[in-house]
Amino acid sequence: MLIDWNNFTPWSALAGGGLIGLVAALLFLGFGRIAGISGILGSLLHEQSAEAGWRLAFLCGLLLAPGLWAAVAPDGLPLHTHTVDAPGGWAVLVAAGLLVGFGTRLANGCTSGHGVCGLARFSRRSLVAVLCFMGSGMATVFVSRHVIGA
């Protein structure tokens, strides 16, 4: 393991994480809601409930964030570094989307629901979930970059 110090951004990572945690905190203290994106989206697609309003508003905020960020940040959006020029790039992306959608609903949570909200309330289920998706994510990158891609 070599640590990539050139791309290591501890302060922006901590600050960004802090903002995410702040939203999770306010959503729970204020409304008793969990800031889990896959759950918010998945429920919105399938439940006709009084919860639909805040879920839709929250997701709209998420969609508006990059535009507002680009309007105030001098460097623009740090988004566009994904390469899909490689053969099979789009197919892999679509397969990944299917797996993420299916998996997060089956596991009842993703990086935000289990990784932030779940761990923050010391849920054993969420700890297991995080170990599973971190582990399989790292294994996938290992195989794609160092076994197949080597």
Partner: peptide, 19 residues
């Protein structure tokens, strides 16, 4: 929980995207 999280992680590792 186990299967779902592992499947999610594979998709995450293939793309670098979570929801």
């Amino acid at each position: 929980l186990l299967v779902g999280s592992i499947v999610f992680g594979i998709g995450w590792g293939l793309s670098g995207f979570c929801p």
